[in-house]
Amino acid sequence: MVGSGASVLKRFRSSQLGGMSLPDYGFYILCATAIVLLATQAVLHPSDFAQILVFGVTQGAIYALVALGYTMVYGIIELINFAHGDVFTLGAYIGTAILGFFSLTEGSFTTINLIALLLVFPLVMLIMGGINVAIERVAYRPLRNAPRLAPLITAIGMSFLLEGIMFLWKGPATVHFPDILPQASTTVAGVFFGFKDVFVVVVAAILVTLLALFINRTRLGKAMRATAQDRDAAQLMGIDINRTIAATFFIGALLAGAGGMIWGLYYNTIYYQLGFRSGLIAFTAAVFGGIGNIPGAAIGGLVIGLTAAFSDSYIGSKWTQVVIFGILIGVLVFRPTGLLGMRVPEK
């Protein structure tokens, strides 16, 4: 009776949220307005529009990778992991350090570049996974039964710590990341496509697909979903909670490490506080897609990337932050379950 009562309550909440008509209208009106405005631009200046689109998708792919880590961690332990953006940045820092051991040729694509890339990319992912598991072990696990805000504060502390390590290591200035991808590009109907753009999107898409397969097909993935739904019940079913949560942090950091590498390879400039702002934006993407919802985070990342790109070009970059966080608030007010309207894990 207890269980059924709780599940009925959950269903009630989601139906109630999904069924509210006024917010839904507001949401659709907002979306429609945005689409009409963008369509006008698309018709008037098609090639500019397409160029912005390309840039937005690229940017969004990186946000998506970072957003996945936020959403997974939040889904499983309801923690806004403030350190995640810094894990992403640290991935880029470690990447540039390891790449420094190779005699790379910047600005062109050599065999050594390719070998370095194939070695370093997965290596950085694994290192970040390990670091994140260590962070979880030290800073979050001991506080699992503590008041809710305690792990939030340690997450903020870890964020400072990681930023501090990068600051100590490379100083306050921006750091160069080797430019080792092919410079090839092509122009289709006035729209510039670089190899880098394609690379970013393809790698991100592969990783997201692998993650989805992992979550849906493997035992560990199922354990994660079960733990996110109901930790106590999962434990009763014999799932090792500590291991499952550690795995979540590991996978989240794999993606963040990849995101950091991609960011570096694409922009060739990194900065120790990069993770702070991009972390907040990626987190917004996670909320946008419905926090705890994995496909939602990927789509949310894309939407936020596009929004940022369109806002930069059509409204002005100083308004982008206002636009993004305005959308965040709007989504939560009009569509609290996120863009996809999917169910949020309730606890």
Binding site: I153, F160, F167, L168
Partner: peptide, 20 residues
């Protein structure tokens, strides 16, 4: 340059020692 690290360690350490 150590400031960030010190601040971070203080936050994590205090929370672990005295979460309440």
């Amino acid at each position: 340059r150590l400031n960030f690290i010190i601040y971070g360690i203080i936050l994590v350490g205090m929370m672990l020692l005295r979460p309440q």
